[in-house]
Design a binder for these strands. Structure first.
Lengths: 253, 253
DNA sequence: CGCCCGCTTGAACAGTGTCAAGTGCTGTGG
DNA sequence: CCACAGCACTTGACACTGTTCAAGCGGGCG
């Protein structure tokens, strides 16, 4: 039905020690329930809701977030192409947060029924999916660090370093530039800051010639300095050190 | 070797929809590699280190943390009795953070070899272990919310609400009091604050008659007000709503 | 053309950090 | 038994980071 690797092409690309087998890839490809396009800023899953399918993001950006009492959002995760967006819903059954698109996206969806049948007799595949949910957890931890220990400049810089590195792994960085369909308000929600202050931070980063972010395009101007400001160490992304992969450069440290 | 449920007694207690079978419990009990006592403030795993065993916390408190450039720590997780401390190391193989004891602890350890043999032919057990690592991820997300959206009072209050609720599930709350072998400096590291400010927050919570925390004992004075200040909604802890469990009260909302 | 949304800027203010000093308890050695 | 050292905690004064409130700008789209 779907060409081999059409859907899973970017999944776990460059991550971890281990790899999906060709058979596992084929099985995932053929058991996809459907592929859908969704518009920007659409809520896909509501917190507390029972979930019976999980999706992989093929194109675009999605986010997961929680609301505070005043209705302000705190993003708790960003998903980029190749990420399983809500695979954790398979063991958890319901989610503790909302899931929404940022820009327009294309997603592939599996029913939990199909996934369960697929993984039950396949410990290795199960392990790979488990691993992918733990990558998200590792990123969560780094976000805790970011919010708990970095100042505003560092937070925004760190966020950008992470995005650059993750997008690089799936081939979505061109030279020193990458597309990021975020408003300043979205950055604010990701970094625990106000829009006004994010604006000032971006100006500061631009004036210090570290990074330019304008109209959804981020341009890295001085990667080493940005990394230093962000105290960014990509080891939490579990990037495969050696690589027989198609040229996917991995942001230097 | 170990009496049934001696080790796993508190594991996943009151959590989630599903449950370990008696057989699975027995298998976990009999495959424990060893049980150890460790002193307070001992580092157990270093970030980046290859890990070949995972431990369940039987008594005491452990934490996971990351260091910033200046050497200050940011706690990214607290483990309480019944938690698998570093089970995520099984799929991840190495960890992106340090693991240490807070007070003195007792832990049970399984080799990854044993766990792998155990889970390979057992999809349901695998699922339960996967689930338990995702509970940690859900807590991570709530910590992101806590740090991103709450002020200092709210953060400390939220932290205390979470501890109270989690400890309640494993029977470690007596009335409105529970032991928490934390220094104010530890709270600071968990809440992204300075020690000085944690001290002021604790005074404020005490004076407002919400919570008293002194010499490692937390006393809830006004739970509803504390919960409100913390914007605490325990649904992220995936507490089992119905319960045929031995009387384990679950902090009211 | 004009409106709206996202971005930008300024000024005043609040919350938290920093620095510095001091208190009180506990354990230890004289 | 007391003195003292060390550590956790406490408090005050002040600086600074980030927020709040308010206003203005600019470009894309109906």
């Amino acid at each position: 039905m779907h060409k081999l690797q059409q859907v899973t092409e970017k999944f776990l690309r460059g991550r971890g020690h281990d790899r999906l087998t060709t058979e596992e890839i084929g099985l995932l490809e053929t058991t996809v329930d459907r592929i859908r396009d969704l518009p920007a800023r659409q809520i896909v899953v509501r917190a507390g809701q029972r979930v019976s399918e999980s999706s992989m993001l093929l194109n675009g950006f999605m986010c997961r977030y929680m609301d505070d009492r005043a209705g302000y959002r705190q993003l708790v995760a960003i998903q980029v192409p190749g990420d399983f967006v809500d695979l954790h819903a398979l063991p958890l059954e319901r989610l503790d947060h909302d899931v929404a698109t940022v820009g327009p996206v294309r997603i592939a969806t599996w029913t939990h029924e199909a996934l369960e049948q697929l993984i039950a007799p396949r410990p290795h595949l199960t392990r790979m999916l488990w691993f992918s949910t733990l990558l998200d957890a590792a990123i969560h931890r780094e976000w805790i660090f970011r919010l708990g220990r970095l100042d505003a400049d560092g937070r925004v810089a760190h966020f950008m370093c992470e995005m650059k590195t993750r997008l690089d792994m799936v081939g979505l960085v061109e030279g020193d530039r990458f597309a990021l369909p975020f408003k300043q308000a979205d950055l604010a929600e990701a970094c625990g800051l106000t829009v006004v202050h994010v604006n000032r931070v971006l100006r500061s980063l631009r004036e210090r010639e570290l990074l330019v972010f304008r109209s959804g395009i981020a341009t890295i101007v001085n990667w080493p300095k940005l990394v230093a400001l962000a105290e960014f160490d990509p080891s939490y992304l579990y990037i495969q050190p050696s690589t027989e992969l198609p040229a996917v450069s991995v942001g230097s440290r």
